[in-house]
Write a protein that binds this DNA or RNA. Structure first.
Lengths: 248, 248
DNA sequence: TTTGTTCGTGCGTTTTTATGCTTAAATTCG
DNA sequence: CGAATTTAAGCATAAAAACGCACGAACAAA
């Protein structure tokens, strides 16, 4: 059997079943696993498949939901980096959706072992890329624009969880009006998340600090930690610090 | 034997068998391998064949390697088009994940008003792009590779639904072994989906017909409709038709 | 016919490629 | 953590390719 033949067959199998085992292929084609591994490596380099421990995965399904240009990524990355430090092994972490949360998801250390729970499709998707993280998706009717599960069932489910920490990507925060948003269903979900978590962390780019939307989620004193891309002692954050909120 | 004669013969052989070995040709025509190699090289330069180590491949064979998008999109699209016709306004539709289902999701008519329920992240995401479709995500612990919710809670939730129709993207179907898969949790989910649906539709490219994986989902007679990219009267599908399964 | 040129072919020799094996390191999993 | 599996790297070997060279046939021109 020619090398190219073999690789064509492998590609075929991979795309057929979404995954293949080196051992299996080796047996099927009567060549050593070494050869298979070299084939897989070669094909992976050409971008045809994704090589993993023990075999290979199809590339087609892997690329999906995410990746699209995000507004002020740099700031959000800064925020996410600070947030990551709050997560420790074994924690139950509840998160909302939103682009800042997605950045957080991407920056989680590879060896972190924790359980992440979210009603957001995109966040859930990102979490599944981390091998050591257990991901729980909160299901229910999906909100079309936020792409997160909303509704009574989702809320009930969230309230059943006792999370160690909750990360909220927020749209507007104001010292008087508190946390606000513009989608009724999302507000309900965030309320539930806050209620059921021991510690609440609000993530927001400084642009959104001291702005207000139509619907109230909660007053500022219900959040424990506020993270922006600014240094903790920046002037605009002083009022929040005075209210007893920890700034990172 | 003249050079031209020889090359004509080689071309014939290549197109007939999709591959030739230099050694084989050399023996057949009683010339040195050097000569064969020179012939192959010449023909390769003219674009008639593709030369590889040890022999040559037909050019048509090689195109399979170059196409690197989703595997057999065309077939899957054909399948999806047939499947779409089964959905009508007002239906409750339950679907699994998988690339064929994603194609189905993309091909749904814009004006379709129905409720789609799925444990698959990618499928749910696609459904949310349709303004008139109500999307319900089944939540639970997420399976890392399939990116679908698995576990007792998801199963319980699925069983509470009485769906009009259920679309399953399947990995392997065999007349004796029935529907099979290679992921325990996914199998459980699919079982639940089948049990709770009035009508079960299996979507599969013909390559997966008459193949078997390790874990059984259900015998073939539990599915109502089988859709492949082949015409309904294709030979490989006859046995299924005899069992009373409708073929599309 | 003779001579010189070109082409096709085969034969050694040297390189390159493909593959399997062994061993040590890495990874996974109970 | 420790056992079992998987991988990576180096080495050995055989097969194939590349290269130069030589021989002989075909062919053209003198």
């Amino acid at each position: 059997m020619l090398k190219e033949e073999r690789q064509a067959y492998i590609l075929h199998q991979v795309n057929l079943h979404n995954k293949v085992l080196s051992s299996h292929l080796s047996e099927q084609m009567q060549v050593s696993e070494d050869t298979i591994r070299r084939d897989l490596q070669e094909m992976a380099q050409e971008g045809k498949i994704t090589k993993v421990h023990g075999g290979a995965l199809s590339n087609s399904f892997h690329v999906g939901i995410t990746s699209r240009d995000v507004y002020s990524v740099e700031e959000k990355r800064t925020i996410a980096l600070k947030a990551v430090q709050l997560v420790q092994d074994g924690m139950f972490v509840l998160t909302s959706g939103g682009t800042t949360i997605i950045e957080l998801a991407r920056l989680l250390p590879k060896d972190l072992q924790a359980t992440f729970i979210t009603p957001s499709l995109a966040a859930a998707f990102e979490y599944t890329n981390h091998p050591n993280i257990e991901v729980v998706m909160i299901g229910d009717k999906l909100s079309k624009n936020a792409k997160i599960a909303v509704g009574g069932d989702a809320i009930r489910r969230i309230r059943q969880i006792k999370a160690d920490i909750c990360f909220l990507g927020i749209n507007a925060i104001d010292i008087n009006d508190g946390l606000t948003d513009n989608d009724w269903d999302v507000v309900e979900i965030k309320k539930a998340m806050i209620d059921t978590s021991k510690k609440v962390v609000a993530l927001s780019i400084s642009e959104k600090v001291n702005t207000t939307e139509q619907l109230t989620i909660c007053p500022v004193d219900e959040i424990d930690i506020l993270i922006t891309e600014l240094p903790p002692d920046a002037a605009p954050l002083k009022p929040y610090q005075k209210k007893g909120i920890r700034i990172l």
